[in-house]
C-alpha cells in the first residue's frame, strides 16, 4: 500500500523529472521552429531568449528528458 500511495503522490506532484521533461519538450519545439525560420540550427542563446530561460537551464532540461522516468524508479526500486 505504501508503494501505491507513493505512486499516486508522485504522479500528482511537480517532481523535477516531470517539470524538466515539459521544458525539454518546449525546447525541442522551439528548436524546430527556429531551424525553419533561420534556415540553420539555432544557437542555445537564441532558444534561451525565446523561452525566457537561461542556456544552463535548457541544457539541464534536455539531459533530464533522456533519463528514465522517476515513476519507474519509484515503483520498481
Amino acid at each position: 500500500i505504501g508503494e501505491i500511495q507513493r505512486f499516486i503522490r508522485d504522479d500528482g506532484s511537480l517532481k523535477v523529472s516531470r517539470s524538466l521533461k515539459e521544458t525539454a519538450n518546449k525546447v525541442r519545439k522551439k528548436k524546430e521552429e527556429l531551424t525553419k525560420e533561420l534556415n540553420r540550427v539555432p544557437t542555445i542563446q537564441e532558444i534561451a531568449k525565446e523561452l525566457e530561460l537561461s542556456p544552463e537551464d535548457i541544457v539541464h532540461a534536455e539531459e533530464a528528458a533522456k533519463l528514465p522516468h522517476s515513476i519507474h524508479e519509484t515503483v520498481f526500486e
Binding site: 511537480l14 517532481k15 523535477v16 523529472s17 517539470s19 533530464a64 524508479e73
Partner: peptide
C-alpha cells in the same frame, strides 16, 4: 536531480 526532489525544493 538524482534524488528527484520537487520543483520547489
Amino acid at each position: 536531480s538524482q534524488l528527484d526532489p520537487t520543483m520547489d525544493e
